[in-house]
Amino acid sequence: MRRFAYHEPKTLEEASRLLVDLGENAHVLAGGTDLFVEIRERLRDVSDVVNIKNIPGMTDITWDPAVGLTFGALVTARQLETLPGVQRTYPNFAEALRLLASIQVRNRATVVGNLCRASPSADTIPPLIADGAIIHIYTPKGMRRMPLAEFFTGPGRTRLERGDIATGIVIPAPAPDSGRIYLKHGRRKAMELATVGVAVSLDRDGDTCTNARIALGAVGPTVLRASAAEALLKGRKITDELIAQVGAQAMAECTPISNVRASAEYRRSMVGVLTRRAVKTAMEATQ
């Protein structure tokens, strides 16, 4: 592993200042499950590691029926995954967590870290975007909040600027009659990066869909919203024909590439299969 300098700030202000002063090769350490692998495999140039684990206030998980679920940047994937409330209320998010890497990794990895890594194939991003999650960011000028759907700008890139630190996430409480699901397509049951990931969250009135959000993972430079496919669902009674149309529309909206994991054509056709399956399941799901 390449050498780096190590810092343990005690406050967000101190951490932020360090990140500004040390320049672009200073990186935040929370779980470290991506950062250290990337340093070791020389995928990222790192001059300084800024450990934020000693900063108070980012380990809480709170639930408020009006606000939803709030958790800090140091909360691990495994903590959230094993909460019965998360499994009950956000089964899509719980599934994404269950499918993320392995239990050993999830015991260390933070969800906010998975978001900030901004991989187009990150498992936690599609369900959180589909559920309208908000990310909280400390900036040198004060706190900001932003819909997670607007947070990503490209593979590995976010709207975080130098000195910014993501501090936590809020997932709004689900509507009373709603269904949500995350489907991951990979070739292994664990330690797998998604070839395609599809999250669908629907609000319902009987067999009519009143609102829909579809997020597609690993088929574009960032996780994508399939807005035209969502529009097809909104206010419509769900039939097999409509589901087929929605799947085809999602395929048209994604922009996959070919690589060693799969060809663009295969990924596109999986978007169709998974979107159809996800819409059907989300309509039938009981919350």
Binding site: E41, R187, R188, K189, A190, L193, V260
Partner: peptide, 16 residues
């Protein structure tokens, strides 16, 4: 080499 590592060289694991 396009996948010289265990991320994209996919060996089945215990779960599989």
């Amino acid at each position: 080499s396009l996948n010289a590592g265990l991320v994209d060289y996919k060996m089945p694991l215990s779960m599989d």
